[in-house]
Design a protein around this nucleic acid. Structure first.
Lengths: 254, 254
DNA sequence: CGTGAATTTGACTGACATCAACTCAGGTGG
DNA sequence: CCACCTGAGTTGATGTCAGTCAAATTCACG
């Protein structure tokens, strides 16, 4: 009845995209595997604007900025966050190479969140006006673009799921499992990677405090589920972590 | 610096759409105010499929169903929810007349959530395949469709904001204020309306228990902020409620 | 009216936050 | 090369908000 939703696992989109690369970008989501011919690909390349480097800690765009471009991350990691009226930041997502930033700005022509590089990064600017023209001419591209927006919606729903009814350790497990699957989809080792974000940022994203994150990581470590050293993480028992994500008691399993 | 984001207030999209009506639907979001000529409108009308009635408690679609149509709500209210692997429901949104359902299914051609009518309702089926063809021919419609998807993304981000860092009474205040603004946008009284969902559903949506919802409603009532009788709600001090939404202490204000 | 469901209210508990002290890594300058 | 400094992270003690459990009340509907 309940399918093995990719959406249960956190965000970031589980796209198997990125399989094709384009001249300018070497990889970005719009270079989908789904039947873009070479000719189409070339035309797409043309609209991919210049590359842009963003240094660690620098914003790619801010809440309230006018909307000109979408951005395909070529290299590096970003976080997107909103700021509450009382000044509290809420991180709404972490994005990595191959993911697309800025889709929330389409509705009002203003960015609704701020995107900041977590490390020195590089993006491709995609002028939205140009993209639109192209979409009208290329049905396959249009369809793909819609899939990507829809996927973003699904991703966010799964975060709502997490924030709405998961206990702290489930949230963290889901977070780790999600990162793992995204790295795997990109061809990296799924069970050993570097966290690009601070404990504080993880906590913010998961609706927990920095201390809770720290304690939970220690707990997982003590239980032999992971190895942690600073920001280096190794998932020793990804299967158990997935079980925790699904609500299983860590001790009941195993 | 921080704009008065509609997104801070919960979901549901604050669109001022619905201003135009179309023959089949009397109203739906695709009949945007933004410059659809009569001719375009007629063509749009043609693809709006048949109306469909959905009785209270009945699903419009379920998680895992194949994706055929988008649905514009013509009359009534719906909730969308996902089910966790351990069987717990998480409500991801409440939708009312003039809002669009099903956009999360575009990515995989499968519905990722279940939509259930909260009361006897009526929707317009919009066959997505047909819509797609039309989008390719009508740039204004395409642009509008993108806005709507983007708006859904923004809406969900604001729910994440709420679930991630708001205390219980802020969540409830935000929920009430959001409903209020959506009714207002539809031409209904903004400060007196009927809740279409149970306390349990509200609690589920806001990540709280039914008891918490009940207590908070009682508290707001005691403080003179609202009048409650069963599902009839009157916002007596919408301004104060908005202040609570933004993090102000209810007693500090006024 | 009567019966079951929904809601309210109260007492208690627990998970996570808060506050505070401490450790550690990495960088800087002498 | 080492002493120092700073910010990130860890760990512990304590507090509190919202959850849990339970009972009372009201509501919906036959």
């Amino acid at each position: 009845m309940i399918r093995d939703l990719p959406s249960l696992v956190l965000p970031g989109a589980t796209l198997d995209i990125l399989k094709a690369s384009c001249a300018t970008c070497s990889m970005h989501q719009l270079c989908l595997p789904m039947g873009l011919g070479n000719e189409d690909m070339d035309r797409l390349d043309q609209i991919i604007g210049r590359r842009r480097k963003v240094a660690r800690g620098q914003p790619l765009f801010r809440t309230g900025d006018g909307f000109q471009n979408l951005y395909a991350i070529r290299l590096g990691h970003f976080k997107t966050s909103q700021v509450n009226r009382d000044g509290a930041e809420q991180i709404t997502g972490f994005q990595m190479a191959g993911e697309l930033l800025g889709m929330d700005a389409i509705s009002t022509d203003l960015h609704h969140c701020t995107a900041v590089a977590l490390e020195d990064s590089e993006v491709c600017e995609i002028p939205f006006a140009t993209l639109q023209q192209l979409l009208a001419e290329m049905p396959t591209l249009l369809r793909h673009f819609h899939r990507m927006m829809s996927q973003e919606i699904t991703r966010e729903q799964s975060v709502m799921l997490l924030l709405g009814n998961m206990a702290a350790q489930r949230r963290l497990a889901a977070f780790l499992v999600n990162l793992s699957s995204r790295y795997e989809a990109r061809g990296y080792a799924p069970n050993a990677f570097q966290l690009r974000m601070s404990r504080e940022e993880i906590g913010n994203y998961l609706g927990l405090t920095i201390e809770s994150i720290s304690r939970l990581l220690s707990k997982f470590k003590k239980e032999g589920l992971i190895r942690v050293s600073n920001r280096d993480i190794t998932l020793l028992e990804p299967h158990t972590l997935k079980a925790i994500t699904s609500g299983a008691d860590p001790h009941a399993v195993k």
